[in-house]
Structure formats: C-alpha cells, structure tokens
Design a protein around this nucleic acid. Structure first.
Length: 370
DNA sequence: AATTCGGGGTT
DNA sequence: AACCCAGAATT
C-alpha cells in the first residue's frame, strides 16, 4: 500500500510545477469541448509537435461541431492526410453527427454518453470529461503509465489492459479536489517533457525526491512492457498504367475498399505475391497483374520494365512494392467503374494514397509523359 | 489477449 | 533498427 503522504506530495508538487511550466498549446487556449475533443483524437498515438499544425488547420476549416458534422467526409479526410490512423477522422465525424442528433450539438458531459461516442475509448473519455468539464476522471495514456510506474515503482506490464485499469484507479485517487483538468494535463506534460521514455531528466523533475523508481535507481528499467512483434514483410507488384487515346497522358489509380487498411484511399493498382522469391520473377508478376486487373474488367498490357521499387512501413507490415510499366489496351472501359479513375498530374495531390505511390507517380510523369 | 489500424521523431 | 507516441476497434 502506498502512503497517502507520498501521494499528496506527488499531486501537490506536480500541479505547482505544471502551473509554472505548462506549454502554450493551441487547444489549451480554447474552452470549447469540441476543440478539446478534436485535439484528443489527433493526439492519439501522435506527438504534440506533429498535431499542432493539423489542429490549427482543422479548427480553422471546421470551427464548430456543426460545421464538421455538415462537411463532406472527403474534405475531413483531406485535412487529416499525413496524420495517419484515418479511421480516427471518420469516427470523429460520425460521432460529431451523433452529437448533433442526440445531444443537440453539445458534447455530452456524462461519462456513459461520452464513452459511447465512436473513437472515444477510456483515455479520451477521461480527457474530455476532465479537461473540458473538470470532472475528476482519470485520463491514462502512455505518459501517465510511465510516470506512475516510475514514481511508485510499479512493475506491472503496461501492455496489459488490466494494468491500465489499475493505473486508472491510482490516477483518480491522485486528482486534487477541483483540479482534474490541470492535474491530468500535468501528468502527461511531465511524461512528455521530463519523465521521457529513454533518458528521463530526473534532476528537473518536481517529484524526484520521493520517486521510488529513482530512489532505487531503476527509473530506466521502468515501465515494464512486453515487446511487440516486428513487422511482417509482404511483397507486391504494382502497375503504373498509362492511358491511350482519350486518356493519353493520364495514369490509372484505384480506390481501396471501404474497410481495413487505408480504407477508401487511392493507390496504384497492385497485387500481393507470396514471398520474396516471387517478387524476383518479373514474368509472373506481369502476368498476375494482368489477370488481377482483368477480373475487374480492366485490360492492360504490363511489361517487365521496373519503374522503381518502393517501401511503405506500417506498425505491423512492411510493403515492398515493385512497380512495373503498363499501358491500357482500351479507352473507355472505366465508365461504370468508380473504383478506378484516370488522373493527370493536376490530380495527384487531391488523392490520399501512400506517399510512396505519389512520389513514384510524379517522378514517372515528369520523366516520361510531360 | 492479440491484432489491426500511420506516420514520424528519438535513441 | 527498435522504440515510442495525450489509443481505439475488432476479433
């Protein structure tokens, strides 16, 4: 059992440190729960410095909850491009529309209602309730688990959901009366600025004196976290397809399915092959591409000329993409096929697809078509 | 409990 | 190259 004095010291010192050191962040200048909400969604697994320009553009384009609710999804995704985890954007808009319909456009302040919104999990619900409404709810993210693990020298594996639940209990006990908004942000601020993952700046820490992890010289061993598996490589052939006739000078792109990886984003048409060995066989890659596209009613002639190789890295996957040159053998076969589209260089930026594709496309266009 | 969702900075 | 980031949804 942790001494109450130790907890009180922690909360008091941390809070007064925060009042002095808090960063001036865009979302800290607003009291609008909608703005707080947007910031919390953007900040999921994303660094503060990355989020700042996106947040400013986003609230500039969608200043109010209702304006976001009424915007075309494409527009919302466009403002999210480059942030990653695109389902966050779709869930946010979907949830915002629900707030308009069910809560008259006001972000709810009741825990069960906030938690019921799409894209709002335990952390984000706590963040909205505490930061926007100053309710004494914990908001436990990676920062908080690291700080608490070290200060209280807790060895529980923070990769386990049960550990997060336990941390939420502890974090809630630590909230000083009436100070939920600042205290929760102070916890995260300490984790981001001082109690960093690799080499914490203990001498600058406001609670170093009673930090048990530090006192035992184990601050670098904490928190305990089981390792994730490393990304699995996959191998793919893509076709860079030049149009003919009416589509001369244009290239063919394809929209991904509604769900799953990179849902609804545009890409070069491509296929997956079983392994690295298949990736070396250009002839089989060429044939597989032609067959796969023919199944979609798209007739092309691929070649064995490599335009380039590209790599796209995800958390759990590494795409190795070999791009082959190809031409379309018919002109007007796409009339009823919305999944495919001819684009010229003026359209390249309007589509959200992995940057590797965009880069290849642009370079190829400049070299061979323009 | 494990896996699937991005992209980028740090070390 | 591994790790981490103001995590959530799905299976």
């Amino acid at each position: 059992m942790i001494a109450n004095d130790n907890k009180r010291y922690f909360s008091t010192e941390l809070l007064s440190w925060y009042h002095k050191e808090r960063r001036d962040l865009p979302w800290r200048r607003s009291r609008d729960p909608y703005h707080i909400w947007v910031s919390e969604i953007m900040l999921q697994q994303t660094r503060v410095d990355t989020v700042i320009p996106y947040f400013n553009r986003f609230v500039d384009r969608f200043p109010s909850l209702r304006q976001l609710a009424e915007a075309p999804e494409e527009d919302v995704l466009k403002h999210w491009e480059g942030l990653g985890y695109y389902s966050r954007a779709r869930n946010l808009q979907s949830a915002v529309r629900e707030v308009v319909e069910r809560y008259d456009g006001r972000v709810p302040s009741i825990k069960s209602e906030v938690s019921g919104l799409k894209g709002v999990g335990p952390y984000t619900a706590g963040a909205i309730l505490s930061i926007a409404y100053n309710q004494p709810e914990p908001a436990v993210d990676g920062n908080v688990m690291r700080v608490l693990s070290r200060y209280f020298c807790l060895e529980d594996d923070i990769a386990r959901p049960s550990t997060r639940v336990a941390m939420e209990g502890l974090a809630q006990e630590l909230i000083p009366e009436g100070e939920a908004a600042d205290f929760n942000q102070a916890l995260m601020e300490l984790g981001a600025m001082v109690c960093t993952p690799k080499s914490p700046s203990c001498p600058e820490c406001p609670v170093m004196k009673l930090c048990k992890g530090r006192l035992e010289g184990r601050e670098r061993e904490l928190p305990v976290k089981t390792k994730a598996k490393k990304a699995r490589p996959v191998y793919r052939f893509a076709a860079l397809i030049e149009g003919t006739g009416l589509n001369a000078g244009k290239l063919l792109v394809r929209q991904r399915p509604d769900t799953g990886l990179l849902a609804r984003m545009w890409e070069l048409p491509h296929i997956e092959v079983p392994d690295a060995a298949s990736w070396d066989s250009l002839s089989s890659g060429r044939l597989s591409l032609e067959e796969a596209l023919a199944e979609d009613g798209v007739r092309i002639q691929a070649t064995e000329q490599i335009i380039g190789d590209a790599q796209h890295i995800f958390t759990h996957l590494v795409w190795n993409i070999r791009v082959l040159a190809a031409i379309a053998t018919e002109e007007a076969y796409l009339m009823d096929r919305t999944a495919y589209r001819w684009v010229g260089p003026e359209d390249f930026e309007s589509y959200v697809w992995p940057n590797v594709f965009r880069k290849l496309l642009t370079e190829y266009y400049i070299r061979n078509i323009k």
